[in-house]
């Protein structure tokens, strides 16, 4: 056995993927009201219900993917690889099942459901990727809306108010 054997090594401590997944779900929840409103505007009530259902599927998909990776990562890296591969198949099957269950319901529209699945999945990922890229490039940087600004070394910190604010 070599020191870098993926069958024996495992991830210790908190799983970073769960943090990423929680962040993704938080961002999805932020966008959900807007998406549901757009769905309601175009396809009325079934559109809103379909968009909400699609968003719930996307959130559950992210959380399940992260939970499987985190769980398998505590066993071994090789188990994590297996979880990623079989998890992909399992989650595709579950999404198919979730759509199959509701396909004949009067409150579901397939077009908004399908569009929501693609757009929300990709949109949230791109949003999260920007944040993760920034944190990987500058590990100490944690942007917040109100950061204290020191105008010079002797000045006391002042709040970072938007320009034009009273």
């Amino acid at each position: 056995m070599t020191a870098d054997n993926p069958l024996t090594q495992r991830l210790e401590g908190p799983a970073p993927v769960m943090e990423v997944a929680k962040d993704l779900v938080r961002r999805t929840a932020l966008l959900a009201p807007v998406a549901i409103a757009v769905g309601a505007l175009i396809w009325q009530t079934p559109g809103a219900a379909s968009v909400a259902y699609g968003i719930a599927i996307v959130m559950a998909n992210f959380m399940l993917a992260a939970a499987m990776l985190a769980w398998a990562g505590r066993i071994s890296f090789a188990a994590m690889g297996a979880a990623a591969m079989f998890g992909f198949l399992i989650r595709l099957g579950l999404i198919f099942l979730a759509v199959l269950i509701v396909k004949d319901q009067p409150w579901i529209e397939m077009l908004p459901l399908g569009l929501t699945l693609i757009i929300s999945h990709l949109g949230i990922l791109f949003w999260e990727m920007r944040y993760i890229s920034a944190t990987l490039a500058h590990p100490g940087l944690k942007p917040s809306p109100k950061l204290p600004i020191h105008q010079s070394a002797s000045d006391s910190p002042v709040e970072n108010e938007p320009q034009g604010a009273a």
Binding site: L11, A15, P16, V17, V20, A21, F62, A65, A66, L69, G73, M80, A84, F88, R91, L92, I95, L117, I118, H121, L122, L125, E128, M129, I132, L136
Partner: peptide, 18 residues
Amino acid sequence: QVQTTMFLGVAFTEALAL
């Protein structure tokens, strides 16, 4: 770091299947 990047990569790749 690798796990975080991998998770994002998996999710992006999965979008094709979606």
